[in-house]
């Protein structure tokens, strides 16, 4: 499903070159629930951005669903992001002037689905998150856990191949964090690949496979006991 081979990525800031990913090899199969761990600066966010086609890479290759993701136009990249990838962020990143339902429906808006239809689908997803009665509420009227569940619903609505979650529990308390992880497991059981970047051990232990990054390469890998 996801295939990375000899992936290199450097950032150039002024005269300094920061080599972040140093020849990373990784294969992720369809339906995996995987977590990426590592200290800050290990390259885990960069990896996630490359996987999410939010950022480019310098060397090697990245295949998503057997399609090479390289030198894409912005239009093409937007298309792939929209159809194959769902994003969940640490700070939820909901649009402040749209209510919960409209936020969930947004990816379908970019696909050109009619307003009526996409809102109806969005309601179904909110229902699955147990948030149906919150559909009309604006993000600032929701709790952190509710916002993250809205964000997760949004990431799922376009039926992506993979959901990329960047510290999804970073802004949540431990009870809510566990609820969110249960939600991810449930979604995963329906066949969607989920990649979670985290630095919390008890979060990563909820996944099937844990990858440790250090200095831009995979240091070690574990299969979780679950």
């Amino acid at each position: 499903m996801i295939e990375l081979k000899g992936l290199h990525k450097s950032y150039i800031t002024g005269n300094n070159k920061l080599h972040v990913l140093k020849g990373l090899d990784l294969i992720i199969e369809q339906g995996e629930l995987i977590s990426v761990m590592g200290s800050s600066g290990s390259g885990k966010s960069t990896l996630l951005n490359v996987l999410g086609i939010l950022d480019s890479y310098d060397e090697g290759y990245y295949k998503l669903n057997n399609t090479l993701m390289n030198n894409l136009t912005e239009k093409k990249a937007a298309h792939y992001r929209n159809n194959m990838i769902g994003f969940v962020f640490q700070s939820f990143n909901l649009i402040s002037f749209k209510n919960a339902m409209e936020n969930v429906a947004l990816p379908l808006y970019y696909q050109g689905v009619s307003r009526k239809k996409r809102n109806q689908i969005a309601l179904e997803y909110l229902d699955r998150m147990g948030l149906k009665e919150w559909a009309d509420h604006m993000p600032n009227e929701l709790s952190g856990g509710q916002m993250q569940r809205v964000a997760i619903a949004r990431s799922m609505i376009s039926k992506p191949k993979v959901i990329l979650a960047d510290e999804p529990t970073g802004a949540l308390d431990s009870t809510t964090s566990l609820e969110v992880m249960d939600l991810f497991r449930e979604i995963n059981s329906s066949g969607i690949t989920i990649i979670i970047v985290t630095h919390e051990k008890d979060i990563s232990e909820k996944t099937d496979r844990i990858i440790y990054l250090k200095d831009g390469i995979i240091e070690s890998e574990f299969i979780s006991k679950n």
Binding site: E74, H79, R81, N82, N83, F87, L106, Q111, R154
Partner: peptide
């Protein structure tokens, strides 16, 4: 918006 698939 762009992460969600909005084109330029």
């Amino acid at each position: 918006q762009r992460a969600l698939g909005a084109t330029p």
